[in-house]
Write a protein that binds this DNA or RNA. Structure first.
Lengths: 147, 147
DNA sequence: CTATCTGCAAACCGTTTGCAGCGTT
DNA sequence: AACGCTGCAAACGGTTTGCAGATAG
C-alpha cells in the first residue's frame, strides 16, 4: 500500500465521520491515521500506546469510543484470534477473508473463496440454512517464513 | 447422538482425567456430564448455572478450573462467536468445522471441507505459508428455520 | 495419610459510565 | 454559542489467585 493511498484512506475515513455528523478532532485524527494504515490487527491498548506518539494527550477511553464509531461506520472490524479476540483492523472491502501471520501478526485480506460447494454439502447434510461464514487462515507471512 | 454414546463419552472423559493424574470428583462429574452431552456452546456462567442443578454446591471457580483441564486434554474447545468468544463446546473429532445456529445457538460439526484449492491460491497470491485455518458457518438450524 | 481439589473472598484487569470542562462547527 | 467530545476517576463484570478446609486415591 503506497503512502498516497494511506493518506487518502485516512482522509476518506475522516470525511466519513464528518458526513455522519461526528466531529473531526485531534485524538480521532491520530487513531484514524493509525488504523487506516496498520497492517496488523491491534488491541485497544496498543492503539492507545501507538496513538500517544502522535497525540500524547490521548486517553484510552477515547480509543474505545472512537473504535466504536469506526466499527459502526464499517471502517474497522474486530478480528478474532487464538490469542485474543478484541483486536481491530481496517474493514474488508466487500467479501474478503483474512490471512494472519502467527508470528508477527501481519494481516492481509484475500478474496475469491470458493466454498459454495461446501455450503451446499453442509446444507444437505445438516439441514441448516447457512447465511454467513467465517474463514480465517493462519500461517507465516513471507518475511517471517524466511527465518 | 443416542443416550448410550452420551454416557460413554462422559465416562471416557472421566477416564481420561483419571489417566492424566487428575481426580474424579463430584463437581467435575457434573461439569463433564454437561459438556459431553451439550449441543450448544456454553459460557462458563451457563455451565455454572446448569451444573448446579446437578450438583448444587458447585462453584464458578471450579467451572473455570475444570474447563481449563478439559481443554488441555483436548476434550473441550473454545468457540468464537460474534456475540462472545468465551464459549466452550465438546472438541471436534479430527478435522471438523462448526455450523452454528444464530437463533438458538445449536452447534454441529461437519467434515469434508474442500478448501485445499483456496489455500493454494492464497499461498500463491500472498506468499504466506498457510498452516491452519478456521472455518465457521452461521445460519438457522432445522428447528429454527421452520418458524 | 497425602496431595489434590474445592468454595469463598479478595484481587485483578480490561471495558464502560458519569461528569465537568474543552474545542468543533 | 451550542453541543459533541475529551480525559479523569470511579464503577463494573468476568476471570484469576490465595487460602484453609474437604476429599479422592
Amino acid at each position: 500500500m503506497s503512502e498516497e493511498t494511506q493518506t487518502s484512506l485516512c482522509d476518506q475515513w475522516l470525511a466519513n465521520l464528518a458526513a455522519s455528523g461526528y466531529r473531526v478532532t485531534a485524538p480521532r485524527r491520530a487513531i484514524v491515521e493509525l488504523m487506516a494504515s496498520s497492517t496488523h490487527a491491534l488491541e485497544p491498548l496498543a492503539i492507545y500506546d501507538q496513538g500517544r506518539k502522535d497525540y500524547p494527550g490521548l486517553g484510552l477511553v477515547t480509543v474505545y469510543r472512537t473504535l466504536e464509531k469506526l466499527e459502526e461506520l464499517g471502517l474497522v472490524q474486530r478480528v478474532h484470534h487464538h490469542q485474543g479476540c478484541h483486536m481491530y483492523l481496517r474493514a474488508a472491502h466487500g467479501h474478503e477473508h483474512l490471512v494472519l501471520c502467527t508470528r508477527c501478526g501481519h494481516a492481509e485480506y484475500f478474496s475469491g473463496d470458493d466454498i459454495g460447494g461446501l455450503i451446499n454439502k453442509v446444507t444437505q447434510s445438516t439441514g441448516f440454512e447457512i447465511r454467513e461464514h467465517w474463514l480465517q487462515l493462519f500461517g507465516l507471512c513471507p518475511a517471517c517464513k524466511n527465518q
